[in-house]
Structures are given as structure tokens and as C-alpha cells.
Design a protein around this nucleic acid. Structure first.
Lengths: 342, 342
DNA sequence: TTGTAAGCGTTATCAT
DNA sequence: ATGATAACGCTTACAA
């Protein structure tokens, strides 16, 4: 039991009720803006609340209502700017609501069986899963838990989600290069994983292949570099590409972070951008602007906002079918792309 | 009341007690690893818990114990890499504990009177305040709330904190430039604010002045540029510096973000780094390595770890005097600094 | 060692 | 419109 009470502001609803000469139920009604209270009583209670500086105990409210007034957000920790940008959107959207933000990182170092977050003890009314590649088994656990879930930048047929059309994004980037006259176009991105919810990279690649095919350019497997995410890893892949006998004249990187890795290598080797090599990124993070990188921009910050809005809507309506919110994509032509040298 | 119970896993401690043929207190004891339980009984209860897949309701636990098992973290939102890096440390340190992480942003757009976070309804056992410039009045509110607080990258005499010696950092950077033979050394940083807890910039500047004085180099007020934080803002300040009749041969920027702004301008104007201009940053964010920027590195990630550790220690011991944890600083000489042209 | 029961501070039912 | 009171699910005196 709560023997030693630390919090000096331990004024309870009962104190207010007593002092205002009403029952606790009435105070509760005032607190929750219930209709059924005389204007007269309401004022008196409110005065007492102010006088006593009473603040309702949120935990007691939670226990009574079963609500948490909190949203759990999980993402593969903050190693990439795009995650941070999405999280900013989430934070911002949540700030104007009564919901608190509980942050969970999912970069559990290689723990395959273990779910990315402790579902059973999640003190939240809903979960926002951002960019975390989920196994089917994990998805199943969420489904079973009954906790509303919204996926951002992820796909699973049974879950609500906020997404962009990554196939279209792949097309946008590739078509831009085709239009400039490139024939030797490489794709550099993350390795695919069949069994996960994170399929964006696969789709970008798909858009790339489709556009190549439509333009009558044969796909060259050696122009497809895939590996772990990261700027450093991208440097290695870019180097492999540029070391070829017939190096590509353009590289479409699956993310800006990877595109920046390509720029690093070009810079090291004094390869002129865009004269000798065109580079297209994906995401539209802030640095892409500073670096004058042509990129397929997706609404990162907005995806956080949209995720929160969708989740809150679901909390209210509990729709039967998975809801989908699609966000727009835009090619931002900048200084890192140009026609190939003849 | 909780009429419609969503959560199907509504198995309570009473269910376990009944099924195991013991009292609820005993189940609670097992749950909390109390000594006073026979090995025999304990096993039986644990078996029943497993069988029923019982998970204690954290809210009920909180209401009963008065604990939250959560830490509130607040920072001036994730606009700068250094904040993100610190947050990563916090997250990581918390991951191995029972404490959840509640994230609050403090970038309340110009709301002077309003505290950066709603102290009274904070559902946390302690607060970690990172880099948020706090008014004295806000600090006072925290003190009154009785909530344990640890400041990171901030100073207030009445609060526990994790810090680096920014005066020393300012010296480190400046001495490096002096040692290289520079005489015309500028300082570019945030504007100071007397009344806030964020005093790092002021101290870095102080170290700069001290070192200049010790080297017999007179301080030139026009070489001191101060303005709002940000890469763009730094570009403007750098331009002002470089437009002078006698421009500095070296610039010490109060943060890497600002140093990068300086590099931008140098790049635009084809000013060779480090031949024509030396640049030193501060923080040691990841990009500083990629950009080969000489910088004063502080343990950002580690500051998050240390902040959590200090806070958890305080939660246990409730020390009477403000605790201080100092983290080391290191000058990282890289390619952006060299002797001035003769 | 174990069980009973009183709290924790709300909300919501049910009378009045 | 309002007030008593049960209930939410747990922890912990206290008694046995």
C-alpha cells in the first residue's frame, strides 16, 4: 500500500467533494464535462478545484476507464534521418491531443523469436509501428492482442497502414534518368527480405525494372547492388559499380543515405556529378537539399502525422477492414542528375 | 466503470489465486519475488501463472504502489543530430530496465509562461531534461513537484546533471588553432541567454576568450558572430565573417551543425579548406567524420546513458545534494584545420 | 508461511 | 440533478 506518500499534491476527488459539499460523483461529472450538472453546482465545484489546485490522478483514471491515454511508437532506432523525421511528425500530431508518447526502439540485436516490443505490458491504447520489419509471427501477436495497430512504411494485409506507392517511386526515379538519355542505370539498395513487412525496397526495385523494360533497356543483374543499409555500406556497393568495365552512367539509390554514400565515392574519385555520373536518391531528407541531390521525396514528417491521425480515428471507430492512407510522392530534380556524356 | 472489457487477457490475480488454491497476497508475493514464500508454493503459483498466461495489470500496480515504471524525457525536438544521438543513449540505457520511455518535446512554439511539459500530469517516476533551455520559474516548478530531475547538457545549481566542461572544450578548440599558428580566429555560435539553464555556448565562448588572452591575441568583437542555431543561420554568419576586410583565417563554430554551415559557404565561394580557412566544430556528430571536420567531440550517446544511470540511482537513494557527472571531451584533429597561409 | 481485507483515486451504476 | 457505493486489479498491513 501507499504508506509513504511522496507526492504532496495528494488532493483527491474526495477532498474536493467534501469541501464543495457535493458527492464525488458530481465532481467526476464536472471533471468529465457531463451534461447533467447544474450550472450552479458546476461553478462551485470548479471553484473548489481551483482553490485546492486539485489535479486528477491519471493512473486512477486509467484503472477505472481502462484507457491509457498513450500511444506506443516503435521504430528501428534513430539511426537514419528518415525515421527521425517521421517521429517528429508523430510527436507533433500527438502534442495537441491528450495522448502521451511512449517510445520503443525495435533494434533488439538479433533476437529473432522475441517480439520487437513487449506487447503484453504495453501501457498504450494503440501502437504505431514505423519501418520495423516485422515477422509474420509478430504481426500475429499484435492481431491477437487486440491492440489497434497502424503500420507506417510497412505492409501487411491485415493491418491498417500509411504508405506511399513505392513502385511508382521507383518508376519516377528511373523514368527521370531514362528521360535524360541514360541507358546504363544501376540500382543500389537494401537487400530484400521476403518474409517481412518491410517491402518498400523491393517495390522501388520493381518500379525500376518496369521502367527499364518499358524503355526497352535490358536489365543487367550486375547493375543491381544490394546490401545492408547505411552510408558506409553504400560506398562499398558504389565502388563495386564504378569499378566495372562498363560502369553505369547513372545510379538510382534506394534511399538518400545510400545516395550520399555514392556521392562520397564519386567525390573521392573525382568523378564529376552530374557530368560523369547521375545520382538519384529516395526519401527527401534534409541533407538531400543541402547536397543538391535529385531525389524521390516522400512525406516523412507527414507520414508521422497521418499515422497518428489514422490511429486515433481507429481508436474511435474500430473499423472492420484495414484502412489505408496513401501519401503522395514527388520527384525532385536537382543538381545531381543530367544527361549522360555522349 | 469498465463495462465492456476489450482486453480478452483479463485474467486477474484472483483467478490465479483461486486456481492455485492460494490467496491473492501469495500470488503477489511470487510476482514480486518476496522471500516469504515456500519453494513449493512458489512453484505451484508460477505454474498456474504460466498456464493461465497471466500478466499483471501494470496500471493496477501503479495505482497501488504509486510508481510508474516510466521515465519522461524531454528535449528540444529532434531537429539536431546531437539531440537524436543523446536520445539514442537514453533509449538504450532504458531498454534493459523495467522503465518505459515517455517522450516529450519541448519545442512549444513561443509560449514563455507555459512549462515545457505538463509536470502535474507526468506519468513518470523521474524526468530527464536534455538541452532544453529552462527558465528559472520552470526549474522551480520541477523542484516543487518533487519529481526527481536530471539535467543533461544543462546547468542549474539545484539540480542533478550530466555535463561536459564546455570552457575546457572552448579552450581545446581554440588552442588547437593557436598552435597551428592562427591569429585571426573567429567564434561563431548561438546567441547567449542569461536566464536559461543552457549555458554551454557561453562557456565555449569563455574558453575561446581565455585561450586567446593566454596566447596574447586580442579579442575582436567583430569576430564574434552569434545568432539562432541552425545550418542556414550559420551560413549567414559565416558569410558576414568572410566578407570582412580582414577575414579570419580560422573559425571555431560552437556546434558541428554550424561548422557545416561554414563549410557550405566556403564551398560555395571556392575557399579551400583547410588551406585558406580552418574550421573547428563541436559535438562530434556522425557527419563530422564524413566531412573530415576537426571537432571537439563530446560523448553524446554516452550522455544519454549517463543521464539514465544517474536518474535511476537518484530514484533509489534520493541524495540530498545535487549530483554531478562529468563526461570527457576530446579534440579530434581532422582535415578541416591546418596552419594559416603565410 | 499464508490469507483476509483495506486501501490506492478514479468512474459509472443505481437509487433517490 | 445528485449522492452512495461497487468496481477496476493490484500491494501490503495485519492477523492467523
Amino acid at each position: 500500500m501507499n504508506t509513504e506518500k511522496k507526492d504532496p499534491s495528494s488532493i483527491t476527488i474526495r477532498d474536493v467533494a467534501r469541501k464543495a459539499g457535493v458527492g464525488v460523483a458530481t465532481v467526476s461529472r464536472v471533471l468529465n464535462n457531463s451534461e447533467a450538472v447544474t450550472e450552479e453546482t458546476r461553478r462551485r465545484v470548479q471553484a473548489t478545484i481551483a482553490e485546492l489546485k486539485y489535479v486528477p490522478n491519471p493512473i486512477a483514471q486509467q484503472l477505472s476507464t481502462g484507457r491509457h491515454d498513450a500511444i506506443a511508437v516503435t521504430l528501428p532506432f534513430l539511426t537514419y534521418p528518415s525515421f527521425v523525421e517521421r517521429l517528429r511528425g508523430v510527436q507533433h500530431a500527438l502534442a495537441s491531443t491528450k495522448f502521451d508518447l511512449m517510445l520503443y526502439s525495435a533494434d533488439v540485436p538479433d533476437n529473432p523469436g522475441k517480439p520487437p516490443l513487449p506487447i503484453s505490458k504495453l501501457r498504450a491504447d494503440g501502437v504505431l509501428i514505423i519501418s520495423v520489419p516485422l515477422d509474420d509471427s509478430h504481426v500475429q501477436q499484435f492481431l491477437n492482442s487486440g491492440l489497434p495497430v497502424v503500420l507506417v512504411d510497412l505492409f501487411h494485409p491485415d493491418h491498417h497502414r500509411v504508405f506511399v506507392d513505392d513502385i511508382e517511386g521507383g518508376r519516377l526515379a528511373t523514368q527521370h534518368l531514362v528521360d535524360l538519355g541514360h541507358k546504363r542505370i544501376a540500382f543500389l539498395g537494401d537487400a530484400f527480405d521476403e518474409h517481412k513487412t518491410f517491402q518498400a525496397m523491393r517495390e522501388r526495385f520493381k518500379g525500376y525494372r518496369e521502367t527499364l523494360a518499358a524503355a526497352g533497356i535490358p536489365f543487367r543483374p550486375e547493375y543491381h547492388q544490394q546490401g545492408p543499409h547505411g552510408r558506409e555500406e553504400a560506398r562499398v556497393m558504389a565502388a563495386a559499380l564504378l569499378d566495372m568495365d562498363k560502369p553505369p552512367t547513372a545510379i538510382f539509390a534506394g534511399s538518400d543515405t545510400q545516395a550520399i554514400g555514392v556521392l562520397d565515392v564519386a567525390n573521392e574519385r573525382n568523378i564529376a556529378i552530374p557530368q560523369e555520373l547521375s545520382v538519384v536518391g529516395y526519401d527527401g531528407i534534409r541533407d538531400s537539399e543541402f547536397l543538391d541531390l535529385t531525389t524521390v521525396a516522400q512525406p516523412l514528417y507527414e507520414s508521422g502525422i497521418a499515422g497518428v491521425e489514422l490511429l486515433l480515428a481507429i481508436l474511435q471507430d474500430e473499423p472492420a477492414t484495414p484502412q489505408e492512407v496513401r501519401l503522395p510522392l514527388a520527384l525532385l530534380p536537382r543538381g545531381s542528375t543530367a544527361a549522360p556524356r555522349t
